[in-house]
């Protein structure tokens, strides 16, 4: 049974020229303990998807128009704010891109960690403190006992992200949503944080949903990957299958446009054009205007997700014709 099951999710945003769908008809599942990568560029809807799961969409201008988000058998979209608060923390934890603004600058990190414990369980001062120290220790902060009294500004970016992870995990969530957790960090620190996340997954037996624009991060962490483009899910596959045989022209374009350390190409392949304006997306396949493989039918109707291998789906009507790489 899946831990999280998103079905036909559609999220609309009010814009100057009426509503537009930031996420459109997105469905996917997440098994307990699995690491799911969601990749996409800006405007792909990956962050909006995450915020919908957490019930943290800014309303207005956003609203969930259709779909269901079933977490452990319960549809979160039917939950009120009170019930959602019960889920956030022990059910689903979340960490964000910017560890600087995610911590309150006027409280010590100890205060903030203990506060999180207090919200979800009855525990004495002593026990709260012990939990906080234990968690800081687990996320690799040396001298945890002393660090409790530090304020966020006394920590480096990597340290703050560790504290955020400690806060998200202190209630033992079954699912951790990590929204661009390493984008603001340097590459040597990024490596440490990704490694920490994978270690903690083993220890806490939780599932992780890692949202990123970086194909490298996905390759190194995820079991399964979803690729999103302009609000739609265009491909999903086990990580090996996705990188071995990307079955959507967008996924291929994305992989080809990254300069790799190992390649010796003179020129990078590019995806021509730019992302569609969210207020006026193409009626058929949203990638059609930029696609080298487009045919008449692509613009006519939204291409359905077609299975091409076990667990590997592509929303391209010509996926069979794409050459093997």
């Amino acid at each position: 049974m899946s831990l999280l099951s998103v079905r036909n999710l559609q999220v609309l945003f009010a814009g100057e020229h009426g509503e537009f769908a930031a996420v459109d008809d997105v469905s996917f599942d997440l098994a307990p303990g699995e690491v799911l990568g969601i990749v996409g560029e800006s405007g792909s809807g990956k962050s909006v998807t995450a915020l919908s799961i957490m019930g943290l969409l800014p309303r207005p201008p956003a609203r969930v128009a259709r779909g269901s988000i079933v977490f452990e058998g319960e549809d979160l979209l039917r939950y009120g704010e009170r019930d959602l608060r019960r889920i956030r923390g022990p059910g689903i934890g979340m960490i964000f891109q910017e560890p600087m603004t995610s911590l309150n600058p006027v409280f010590t990190i100890g205060d903030q960690l203990m506060e999180t414990v207090r919200v979800h369980e009855r525990a004495g001062q002593k026990r709260q403190r012990d939990r906080a120290v234990e968690m800081l220790d687990k996320v690799g902060i040396a001298g945890a006992e002393r660090r409790l009294d530090d304020y966020p500004h006394q920590l480096s970016g990597g340290m703050r992200q560790r504290v955020m992870i400690a806060m998200a995990l202190i209630c033992n969530p079954r699912l951790l949503i990590a929204d661009e957790p390493t984008t603001a960090l340097d590459v040597t620190i990024q490596q440490q944080i990704l490694e920490l996340l994978l270690d903690l997954r083993e220890e806490f037996r939780m599932a992780i949903m890692i949202i990123t624009h970086n194909m490298g991060v996905v390759a190194e962490t995820a079991d399964r990957v979803i690729v999103m483009y302009a609000g739609r899910l265009v491909e999903q596959a086990p990580v090996d299958g996705l990188f071995a045989r990307p079955a959507h022209p967008y996924t291929r374009g994305l992989l080809d446009s990254i300069p790799k350390l190992s390649d010796e190409r003179e020129r990078l392949k590019t995806i021509p054009g730019t992302l569609p304006n969210p207020a006026s997306v193409p009626p058929g396949c949203r990638f059609e205007p930029r696609c080298a493989w487009r045919v008449g039918a692509c613009a006519a109707a939204v291409p359905p997700l077609a299975a091409i291998a076990a667990g590997h789906d592509s929303a391209c009507i010509r996926h069979r014709e794409l050459p093997v790489q």
Binding site: F13, G15, E16, H17, F20, A22, S42, G43, S44, K46, S47, V48, L51, P58, P61, F96, Q97, E98, D179, E180, N277, P278, A279, S280
Partner: peptide, 18 residues
């Protein structure tokens, strides 16, 4: 979050339309 803000930027939608 940056992504959400980018999508919300009212000027972004003005751009193409007018």
């Amino acid at each position: 979050m940056a992504e959400a803000v980018a999508t919300l930027d009212p000027q972004a939608s003005v751009a193409a339309a007018a």
